[in-house]
Write a protein that binds this DNA or RNA. Structure first.
Lengths: 202, 202
DNA sequence: CCACTATGAATGAACGTTCATTTATAGATT
DNA sequence: AATCTATAAATGAACGTTCATTCATAGTGG
């Protein structure tokens, strides 16, 4: 017998693997609990319902990504041990890192996005995560525009474009991994940032 | 009594509305046939199975988009009645036009993308559509790079970035329409093209 | 001994599919 | 023109399956 939080994490991990392998619509309680090596009823004991398990799984993936992003983009970190150019570089590295761009995570991410327009609970989790990314990246870009004295550049517009570009690259990596490699995706994103902030990226 | 092709289109349209409103996983044969104002058994009569109906619906949406894209990007059109700059402008207008960016269409698009990594048939349809877009946009960009004598610009990389940006903007328009408007999305995409081809966009 | 965790057979609702039946259309026959 | 016949389209009740959820029972730690 394990603690409550251990079992919850075990089930969420199993749910992620199931969604990545079988898709959201084919993910059943049987599949998840078997993947976790547990009995059928256990998921309802810890999560009350399937709907709640799926929502908690989305929250888990979202939180994991946001934590990584905040570790880079919170002011105390980005101003203390490095210049803005370094922060930009670390942001790029993170968003196209192995941990973030592994098939399993991206498949889960887009599976929920696909259902988000019909399910308010998913919509809420996804959009609030997006809002946080947008806010933080916009702050960074504003600081860079200020520091580099870039004329006629709108930080908000650049941030919107950059985040959309990253989302689009993730989608390409997921759907057509043979056409677009991670390294090439990173080159594309880097080129965008170089055009925007030529003084801050070599 | 209607002809076979009329009924098929009627059912596909109903399927699109159901997916947009209820999501792919909650789209049942009951829902689709009721939405179409027909009886339950009719969908199996015309499409054999639900799986086939869903695949045909994806093909229909994909074909519609590709037709619009090809009308702009086939050589005979783009070279006869306009310069490359006009073609670029028309491409931008099309990809962020009302017809393409309406919620209904985008919701369907991303619903299938979300399941694509688990369903080979969706994967195939999506990726072959993506490949076509990529090829055509790359051809256009290569011609523009050549005409404008842009140095150190890789048409393939620019096309990858541009299409990823468009995908990302669509996703933002779908999930957070209040944060990003269509007009602003167009501005962002235009800014990308202006940076890439300053001589071809005012 | 009590409270908590875990099991998996049982349950009922919902689903895709089938098919006997009905309805509509077009061509042939009188 | 009117009637009959053949073919296809359309219906929806019924069927078998699958699913999430429940719960009686068993196991475990304090």
């Amino acid at each position: 017998m394990r603690s409550r939080s251990e079992r919850r994490l075990q089930l969420i991990d199993a749910t992620i693997r199931c969604i990545a392998q079988h898709g959201l619509s084919a993910t059943t309680m049987q599949l998840v609990t078997r993947e976790a090596g547990l009995s059928l009823g256990i998921a309802n004991l810890h999560f009350q319902s399937k709907e709640n398990l799926l929502a908690e799984t989305l929250r888990h993936v979202t939180r994991e990504y946001n934590d990584g992003l905040l570790a880079i983009l919170t002011p105390e970190n980005s101003t203390s041990d490095g210049c803005l150019a370094d922060t930009l570089e670390r942001l790029l590295d993170f968003q196209l890192s192995h941990g973030v761009t592994q098939r399993q995570k991206m498949a889960v991410w887009f599976a929920y996005y696909g259902e988000a327009s019909a399910r308010p609970i998913y919509q809420k989790i996804c959009s609030s995560s997006d809002r946080l990314s947008m806010q933080k990246v916009e702050e960074l870009f504003a600081a860079i525009v200020n520091e580099g004295e870039y004329k006629d550049r709108d930080p908000q517009q650049l941030a919107t474009g950059y985040l959309a570009l990253i989302d689009g690259l993730w989608l390409s990596l997921l759907v057509a991994p043979r056409v677009l490699t991670k390294a090439r995706g990173k080159d594309v994103a880097r080129a965008y940032l170089q055009q925007a902030f030529p003084k801050h990226l070599n």
